[in-house]
Structure formats: structure tokens, C-alpha cells
């Protein structure tokens, strides 16, 4: 079984470690969500619905932004962990971002993130608490696992990126080489195309997250 992963993001102070755990088949999502709603301090995590996370970079970019805002003392939401979920959104609406990217009662694929904002928060305390609290199967947090859990069509819809990387919508024609891809799902293309498409989608999402509504 996979274990809690502890990461250090570039540029952040070394003591501000990022702890990440990915779960599938979560059975007690509504209990976990209730703890967040009640503001139970023991459950101060960013609990993200993994089906709307494209890649590790996607999730960690939100962590980076929230951590930076935390360090500069300008969080817009309750704490750095809710700020992570808020930072995934492409607009300035906190409630909407929490609803869209946060855990829902029906969530089965769950990404739990916690920052060591205090020296007492360590990998082992988190690990212990999570395994006692989350009823699900822990898997490794990596791009391949996320790719198996996420719903690309839903992600495109959330960020209004219907055409990016594959074309369609108002972007009309334009594949430089002239091949017209019918908008929507063309999954028969080579793996290279899929990879390029994923990369284009990722960079478009990061841009929208960075702008956060300042479009």
C-alpha cells in the first residue's frame, strides 16, 4: 500500500513541507466533508476531488500559490488548506471553487493535502490521522494514477477549455498541418498527440489559475 508522500516545492521555505495522499474508493466522503463544514480543527486538510485534477503539477501549482499567499499574509479564505482548494479555481468565487474542487458527499477519489505550517505537524502525525479517518484505498500520488482517476471532459468544462489542445468550439479550424480534428473526443490519435494535448491543457489551466478571474 502506498504511503503519505512528503514533498518540498521549489522556492518555498524548506520547513514548509507538503504532505500528499491520494485515495480511491473512499466510502466516508460525507463524514469527511461534514468535519470540514463544522470547522473541526483536526480535519484541517485540503480535501480535493481527485477526478477534477489533471496532474500532479496542476494540484501542486495550487499548493504553491496558496503557500505563497499564506507566507505573505493575504489568504482570502479561512486557512491555507481551504486556500489550496480555492486556488484551483479560475475565478474569485471562494464558495464556488470549494464546491467544484473540494470533496463532495459522493466523492470516491480523494486527494488530501496538508502543509506543515507548524513544527508539530509531521508526516507521521498526519499519516496516523489520515489512516484512522479516511476509509479508502491509498494509492501513490503521481501523474499516471491521477490520469486513471480524472475526468478530462469534466476538467475541460470546469475551466471552459473546450477546444484547447484539440480544437473545436469558437476556436474553429486552425490545425497548422491542415488536418481537421472533429471537436470532441478523438482518442484514436497517437500517444504523442495525447501527451501534447495533455500538456497544452495543463498549461492553459495553470494560466487561468494564475490569473484567477483577472481575465
Amino acid at each position: 500500500m502506498a504511503a503519505l508522500q512528503t514533498l518540498h516545492l521549489a522556492h518555498l521555505p524548506p520547513d514548509l513541507a507538503v504532505h500528499v495522499a491520494l485515495y480511491t474508493d473512499v466510502r466516508n466522503a460525507s463524514f469527511l466533508r461534514d468535519q470540514l463544514l463544522q470547522g473541526n480543527p483536526d480535519f484541517e486538510y485540503a480535501l480535493v476531488d481527485a477526478s477534477v485534477i489533471l496532474s500532479t503539477t496542476h494540484a501542486l501549482a495550487a499548493v504553491f500559490r496558496a503557500a505563497n499567499d499564506h507566507l505573505k499574509g493575504r489568504l482570502k479564505s479561512r486557512n491555507v488548506h481551504s486556500e489550496i482548494v480555492f486556488s484551483l479555481g479560475a475565478n474569485n468565487n471562494i464558495a464556488q471553487s470549494l464546491r467544484t474542487f473540494g470533496i463532495t458527499p459522493t466523492t470516491t477519489n480523494l486527494l488530501a493535502i496538508k502543509l506543515s505550517t507548524d513544527p508539530s505537524i509531521t508526516s507521521s502525525t498526519i499519516s496516523e490521522h489520515l489512516s484512522a479517518s479516511i476509509q479508502g484505498i491509498q494509492v501513490e500520488f503521481n501523474d499516471a494514477k491521477l490520469a486513471g482517476l480524472n475526468n478530462i471532459a469534466k476538467i475541460r468544462k470546469l475551466y471552459k477549455l473546450g477546444g484547447v489542445g484539440e480544437e473545436g468550439s469558437k476556436g474553429k479550424r486552425r490545425r497548422k498541418d491542415g488536418t481537421v480534428e472533429s471537436s470532441g473526443l478523438v482518442d484514436g490519435t497517437a500517444a504523442k498527440d495525447a501527451e501534447r494535448e495533455r500538456r497544452e491543457l495543463e498549461v492553459a489551466i495553470l494560466g487561468l489559475m494564475a490569473l484567477r478571474g483577472a481575465v
Binding site: L161, G207, L211, V215
Partner: peptide, 11 residues
């Protein structure tokens, strides 16, 4: 940033 994001989205 706005201009870059727009350009990138539009290919």
C-alpha cells in the same frame, strides 16, 4: 499574463 494566456488558448 492575460495576453499570454489568451494567445496560448487560441493556439
Amino acid at each position: 499574463a492575460r495576453t499570454l494566456v489568451k494567445c496560448r488558448r487560441e493556439g
